[in-house]
Every structure is written in structure tokens, then in C-alpha cells.
């Protein structure tokens, strides 16, 4: 695409892609943390309130929560892979923050997180069908 501001093009491109990567990293991190707080509390029921534990887990078995769980697993894959990318670049390969490599690495991270997630999403989706729509 011809640009009247060729000098600016590289920056604006990384900003778009890089900001998407950053925003997704932040949203997934906060989302996982929200779930983690609830999850630490429900798990500690095994000690503090064992009679309530199975009831609490029952909530996670509902359809909306199982769908949420599928997205939570993608969040963990994306945040984890992107986190590893950031750590490698920051600590060992700062020269990879060079624009072209940085942009490509974002696409790779997105692709890998989706590829790793698909089989998991399939198995978890199947579990929803098996537990809610079959053999009832």
C-alpha cells in the first residue's frame, strides 16, 4: 500500500499489532486472575468447609461455566505463550524487538495459542455434549 508517510508506516504497523498483543495479554491476565481468586477459595473448602465443596464444583458443571472454561483455557495458552515470548525477548534477545521480527512473533504466538487450544476445546466441547445432552 502506497503511503504518503513512508517513514511512519513501520511504527504504526507495529503499534497496531503490538497493541493488540499487549491488550490481549492484559485482558487474559486479569481474567485468569479473577478466576484464580475464586478457584483458590473454592479449593480451600476441602479443608474449611468440606460439606460445601461438591456443591461449589456443581456450579462449574453448568453449561455457561463449561463454555467459560473453554475460553479460560485459551486465555492461559495465549497469555502463557505470549509471556514466554516477552521474557525471551526482554531477557535474552532484546534485538528481536526489532519491528519485523516483533510483528511476526505476534502472529506466531496467536497461531500457536489457537493450534494448541483447538484439541483441548474439542475435548471440552465434547464433554459438554456428553454430560448435558446424552445419556441423561
Amino acid at each position: 500500500m502506497a503511503s504518503r508517510h513512508p517513514a511512519l508506516e513501520g511504527y504504526t504497523r507495529y503499534r497496531a499489532v503490538g497493541q493488540l498483543a499487549f491488550l490481549l495479554h492484559r485482558i487474559t491476565g486479569l481474567g485468569i486472575l479473577l478466576f484464580l481468586v475464586i478457584h483458590i477459595i473454592d479449593t480451600s473448602f476441602v479443608y474449611f468447609a468440606p460439606e460445601l465443596y461438591d456443591e461449589a464444583i456443581q456450579i462449574y458443571r453448568s453449561i455457561p461455566f463449561m463454555i467459560g472454561e473453554i475460553f479460560l483455557v485459551w486465555s492461559v495458552f495465549y497469555h502463557g505463550f505470549n509471556g514466554i515470548r516477552i521474557i525471551i525477548f526482554d531477557l535474552w534477545k532484546p534485538e528481536w524487538w526489532e519491528k519485523d521480527i516483533a510483528v511476526k512473533s505476534v502472529y506466531w504466538t496467536l497461531a500457536l495459542s489457537i493450534l494448541a487450544w483447538l484439541p483441548a476445546a474439542y475435548i471440552m466441547g465434547r464433554a459438554i455434549i456428553e454430560n448435558h445432552f446424552m445419556g441423561g
Partner: peptide, 30 residues
């Protein structure tokens, strides 16, 4: 943030894959 990030890789991925995918929430109870 980076040190905990590196350490966590060993714990988070196995935990999520075992509990959410392989075992599944319908098989988890007291």
C-alpha cells in the same frame, strides 16, 4: 514478573491440561 513467569510454565500448563481437559470438571469432587 519474569522469574515467576518462567517458573510457572512448568506448573500451569500441566495443571490446566490435566484438570480441565483430561480429567474434566464432572470427575472432580472431594
Amino acid at each position: 514478573m519474569r522469574i515467576t513467569g518462567i517458573l510457572m510454565v512448568v506448573f500451569v500448563f500441566p495443571h490446566v491440561i490435566i484438570k480441565d481437559v483430561i480429567v474434566g470438571v464432572h470427575n472432580i469432587d472431594l
